[in-house]
Design a protein around this nucleic acid. Structure first.
Lengths: 210, 210
DNA sequence: TCGTGGCTTTACCAAACGGTAAAAAGCCGG
DNA sequence: CCGGCTTTTTACCGTTTGGTAAAGCCACGA
């Protein structure tokens, strides 16, 4: 009786799980390239190998697919920041965070572009999530960094702008991949990027004349 | 006899110039938010105050408007990099470039987002321009920076990744404005950004223990 | 063997899309 | 105030869009 479209139902069958995964996989391909408005259900249908009505059997509509993708992604996306440890050594904690962030850009470029599209276009479907999910976390971690700076364990830096710089430099390699591919010579772009970014933030954050 | 749609014609009348400007202005609003596929001629028509057929009287189609915007923009967009002076003092030249770049993000956020949309979505209509217009310029300036580094007038840095970092950090404030607006406390975001970014790259680039 | 419930397809729809033809309305020098 | 042009509007067109109704398919327990 109840359709698999409403996630509140109890146990998804094996086939439901498989098809929902296939749809989300295909939708990630399409949304991350075309953006929400530019993507079409027909593209997602073709990419997933399912028919359009069949897709609407598993999801309540185009927007539901998009929202599902964004939510699922944000979980893992902010994980690295959440793991920034107040008990750890400040510089090493931040460098580890930066490394992890760059690694995620390399491993999940589609997710990064999905997010980039949503934000560039004004975050119409994510602003609540930003305000109630991301902002408190950023506030918390910014306060932590500010404490580290006050204790002289980090060079003086504006915490929020530091975080912005980290996001900007790391996600750039995924979001602007098309540009990178044209401008960078063949070779280990990601390895060079890791070395460059880590060196850059090490210089910025190292306390004293370390 | 000839329609104003083909730019190869001689003199545009006063009214042609005015309406083409109005269309491009409106189209910039729409394309920079929705991306190419997400934008519609009806939106542009409504935003410009002209009717849809009237818009197609001045431009050969949706794509022609988009291409016109991108070309017009790229001119001014790479200006700052082009002005990087081989005769100048390396650190000051680069910091001036960074300042100018951030200024442009503040002054032309729509243009930045137009570009961001195009690149995130794979640069389908701009790859030729990237290869034949931007790449040679980047190659030239990367060589210049490499020379400065070799001469010991800059701290060792990978030139191309340096340029990427500059673009990433400066454009981020325009492209992800929706996120910035949520996460940053009220106040001079742009002024703080300028101080942060300049300080960051000064530390990165200053030669020796300067 | 027969349902019965979960899954899939076929055949649609109204609205929105980019674009066109041609008539109507301005505009302006003579 | 007229004739010829540029500009604008009206009325469309074929296609694509997100979405729906309903019939068909399929495995499996009684």
């Amino acid at each position: 009786m109840q359709t698999p479209a409403d996630t509140s139902a109890k146990k998804p069958s094996r086939i439901q799980a498989r098809n929902r995964r296939r749809i989300l996989e295909a939708a990630l391909d399409v949304f991350s390239v075309e953006g929400y408005r530019g993507a079409t259900l027909d593209q997602i249908a073709q990419a997933s190998g399912l028919s359009k009505p069949n897709i609407l059997y598993y999801f309540d509509g185009k927007e539901a697919i998009h929202v599902t993708l964004l939510n699922a992604m944000m979980e893992t996306w902010v994980e690295p920041l959440r793991r920034l440890d107040p008990e750890g050594e400040p510089l090493e904690e931040l460098l580890r965070y930066i490394r992890r962030k760059l690694e995620m850009s390399r491993e999940y470029p589609r997710e990064s572009r999905l997010f980039a599209n949503e934000i560039v276009q004004g975050a119409p479907r994510m602003r609540p999530h930003l305000e109630h999910g991301l902002k408190p976390l950023v506030d918390e971690k910014a306060a932590l960094i500010a404490r580290w700076v006050a204790e002289g364990r980090l060079a003086p830096v504006e915490p929020r702008h530091l975080i912005m710089s980290i996001w900007a430099t790391t996600q750039h390699y995924a979001d602007f991949e098309a540009q990178i591919a044209v401008l960078m010579p063949e070779g280990d772009v990601w390895d060079d990027a890791a070395a460059h970014v880590e060196g850059m933030f090490r210089k910025l954050l190292a306390p004293e004349g370390g």
